[in-house]
Simulated scan of single mutants.
Amino acid sequence: MNGSSVNFARQAVSKVPEVTLGFWVIKVAATTLGETGGDWVSMSLNLGYLVGSAIFLVLFIGLVSAQVKARDFHRFLYWATIVATTTLGTTLADFADRSLGVGYPGGTAIVVALLIASLAMWYRSEGTVSVESIVTTRAEWFYWITILYSQTLGTALGDWVAGDDRGGLGIGYEYGALLFGAGLVVVAVLYFSTRVSRTALFWAAFILTRPLGATLGDFLDKPVAQGGLHISRLFASAILLAFIVACIVLIPQRSAKPQQAV
């Protein structure tokens, strides 16, 4: 790699936050907001999953375009883009599960196929799928599209595990959250005690935080009879948004160094 490519790589990586405990705290909160916010637009406002997905798709494209054009890491821009992927992922998963009539297993299978295809195309194009490989505009778009699919998969998995309709396993939102939380603990143990690929563990954790957030979000806004707290989706979303903003402001964040990106 020549000198100009190295400089560009550092610049691209600098737009990605360092992966710390604070990163994962904000990520879980953002995924929970994606669930409550997505459901508020598509269900509470009665816009439907297709219209809701169209709205969030426009937001997603606009924010990713701004993120790609940015020269440096901007905390609020990055996390706004993450929230856009979580809300769009929520409505897309719900559209696949419910509007297409394929149920939770079918919707999950569709998104798994899309995620695998995205990772395969990214790997074929760039030779790696690690965050530190984002040295071109094309790679950065692959990064955000893969994140979108991972968020969508997380929503589908969360609904499949917790729901008792449409082929769901019926575990419930509380036990679903515990199950995915346990999965994250396993990933953490592998990270600190083995030499398993950091790239693979990063994407595993990124996917697992989404169903954790989805089940937490459902737990907040679903009726008590369905195992939830029946908090208004708009109110829950406002609380989560305030928490995320506070975390972004108060938790120190800096751009990731190549060896810390995943």
Results as ranks from 00 to 15, higher is better:
95 F>M: 13
136 T>H: 08
5 S>K: 15
53 S>H: 03
238 A>D: 05
15 K>P: 01
45 L>C: 12
219 F>M: 13
175 Y>M: 14
38 G>H: 05
219 F>T: 06
175 Y>C: 05
165 D>W: 08
14 S>E: 07
140 E>A: 14
230 H>E: 11
38 G>N: 04
239 I>R: 05
47 L>S: 08
176 G>D: 06
99 S>D: 13
144 W>E: 05
202 F>D: 04
212 L>W: 02
239 I>A: 10
67 Q>C: 07
149 Y>C: 12
209 T>N: 13
78 Y>K: 02
184 L>R: 04
29 A>T: 06
166 R>V: 02
195 R>T: 14
157 L>H: 04
195 R>A: 10
199 T>H: 06
227 G>H: 08
95 F>W: 15
258 P>K: 11
191 Y>T: 15
206 F>T: 00
158 G>H: 07
90 T>L: 11
57 L>V: 11
78 Y>A: 08
13 V>R: 03
149 Y>A: 08
31 T>P: 02
213 G>W: 00
39 D>H: 10
80 A>H: 07
192 F>L: 11
21 L>A: 14
81 T>D: 03
247 C>T: 03
198 R>T: 12
169 L>S: 07
145 I>S: 10
123 Y>M: 09
191 Y>M: 11
124 R>A: 14
60 F>W: 07
78 Y>V: 12
225 A>W: 06
210 R>A: 02
5 S>M: 14
89 G>W: 00
173 Y>F: 13
177 A>W: 01
43 M>G: 07
143 Y>L: 09
186 V>Y: 11
65 S>E: 11
250 L>Y: 09
58 V>L: 15
220 L>C: 00
94 D>N: 15
120 A>T: 14
113 A>G: 13
107 G>K: 01
259 Q>Y: 13
201 L>K: 09
60 F>Q: 02
191 Y>Q: 09
53 S>L: 08
208 L>G: 04
4 S>H: 12
153 L>S: 03
150 S>D: 03
248 I>L: 15
154 G>D: 02
113 A>Y: 09
109 A>R: 09
136 T>M: 09
23 F>R: 05
48 G>E: 03
143 Y>I: 07
210 R>W: 00
129 V>H: 07
14 S>F: 05
217 G>E: 01
28 V>R: 04
14 S>N: 10
25 V>P: 01
242 A>F: 07
166 R>Y: 09
93 A>Y: 05
121 M>Y: 11
72 D>G: 05
88 L>C: 11
38 G>F: 01
255 S>M: 12
127 G>Q: 12
230 H>F: 10
